[in-house]
Design a binder for these strands. Sequence first.
DNA 1: CGAATAGTGTCTATAAGACATTATACT
DNA 2: AGTATAATGTCTTATAGACACTATTCG
Lengths: 242, 242
Amino acid sequence: MSDDSWVPPLVMVAVDLVILTLRAAKLHVLLVERGVEPYLGELALPGGFLNNAEEDILDAAHRELSEEANLDSPRLHLEQLGTYGAPNRDPRGRVISVAYLAIAPGLPEPVAGTDAAGARWEPVEEVLSGCVKLAFDHHGILVDGVERARTKLEYSALATAFCGDTFTIAELQQVYEAVWGVELDLRNFYRKIQGVPGFIVSAGTDRRTTKGRPARLFRAGGLTALYPPLVRPGSSTADEGE
Amino acid sequence: MSDDSWVPPLVMVAVDLVILTLRAAKLHVLLVERGVEPYLGELALPGGFLNNAEEDILDAAHRELSEEANLDSPRLHLEQLGTYGAPNRDPRGRVISVAYLAIAPGLPEPVAGTDAAGARWEPVEEVLSGCVKLAFDHHGILVDGVERARTKLEYSALATAFCGDTFTIAELQQVYEAVWGVELDLRNFYRKIQGVPGFIVSAGTDRRTTKGRPARLFRAGGLTALYPPLVRPGSSTADEGE
DNA sequence: CGAATAGTGTCTATAAGACATTATACT
DNA sequence: AGTATAATGTCTTATAGACACTATTCG
C-alpha cells in the first residue's frame, strides 16, 4: 500500500471570500464578474490562487480582500469558513478552495480600483433564492457563509463588524434584523444589548439628524463572546414529535 | 501582476483527524506514533496525504479513519474542523492540512489492526496541558477540535455520538461532564434533556445491573439542533467591566 | 407646541439553578 | 428489610417576550 517511491498528488490552492455587508438595511455580498476562463463573464465570489508556495493562506485571503475588494482595514473581521475540495469543482484541474468569511461595514458607493473586471454588491437574497447564479460551487460556499454569520451573531459580538467605528443602537438592531431576516422588538433589544457588559461602550457623543432626538453613539467593546447569547427567534423548530 | 504564463503553486494536501471518545468518564483523543520521518517516533494525530488527485477530501478523511483507527461506521460523526496551512508547518515542503473532527462511542480496549506503528487513546487533558507533545502543529488542531466539540455540545445533539447505539441518561450526562470538565446537577439534567423533544427517544428496554434499579435505555432522536440550547455553566466570563 | 426620532419601564411567561424525596430492583 | 441505583418534584431566581409611555431636539 505504501511504496517508497510514492509521492502525494499536487493540487492548486485557491482562496475565496464571502464578503458581507449591509446596504440599505439589506444583507449584500460582494461578487465579481469573471474576467478569465472558466466561467468567463459569470458572477463569482472574489478570490484567487495562492501567489507562491510560501504564501500563508490567511495572508492570501487578506491580499485578495485588498486586490479584489479594495478592503484592507486591519480591523476587518476575517475568519476561515471551510475548505471545498470536490475533485471536479474546477475544470482547470484539482483545485481546493479555502473559503473565508469577511464582514465589512456599510461602505460608500462603489467598490472601485479592483482587479477583477467588475465588482458589485448583490443582495444575498437574490443569490440564495437562485435568481442570481454563481460560478463553481460558490453558491454552496455563500450559503455556508451566510449561515455562519447568522449563527455567530447569536453567540459573538460579530454584529459590530457590520457597523462603522461608531454606531447607534438602532443601527446595530438593523444588522440583526437584516442578517436574520426578522423583526426585533426595539425595547427588548435595548435591554438585551445594554445588559451584556462590554458588548458596546458609549462613544460619548451623539449623532444629530435634521429631525428628532439625537441618538447616542457607541463603539464596539472588547467583548467577543456573548453571554448570555442573543437567541434568534423562530429557531424553535422541533424536528420530530415522539 | 498577472502574467499569461503564470501558474499557481502546487501544494500537497493532507487530512488530519481529531478523533475524540470517552474512556473511563474522561475525554480521550486517538494518537499515533509516527513510523516515518519527519517527527519519526513522536506522537501525532492520525492522518495522511490525499491518495491521488481524484480523491475527495471527505473521502480521504473516511479512509484515514478506517486505515489508522479501524473506525468506519457510516453513522460516525465526521465534520470539517478547519484548514491549517502555515508555510513551514511541514519540513517536507508546502503541505496544507484539512482537519476533521470525529466523535466515536466508547470502544472496547485497543485500537487494533491499524496502519500506523502504534495507535492509542490519550487523555485529552494530558495533551492540552502540554505533558504530552504532538508533532507538527497538531497541538493547535487538537485545541480547536476540543473547543469545537465543547461548543457543539451546547447547540447540537452531538453528545449522543459519544454514546453507543443505546445509552442511559446518566451516560449522556457523563459525556457532558467529561467534555466540559464540569459537574452537572442530575435532576436539572434529566429535566432539560427530556424537555427537548426529539433529542433522545426511549429504546423501550432497560439496562439491568447487578445492583439497584435498572436504567431506562434511550437512543438518539433525529434532532440535530438543540433548541433551546444546553448552556455550559461558567461561561459567563465577562471580558471587561465598563 | 407639535412633529419626529430616541430611549425607558412593567408585567407575564418560560427556563435555569438549587435542593430532597420517591421509585425500582436485587440480595 | 436494607442497600444501591434511577428517576422525579418544588421552590426560587433570572431571562425572554409582549406591550405603552416618557424624553429630547428642531422648526
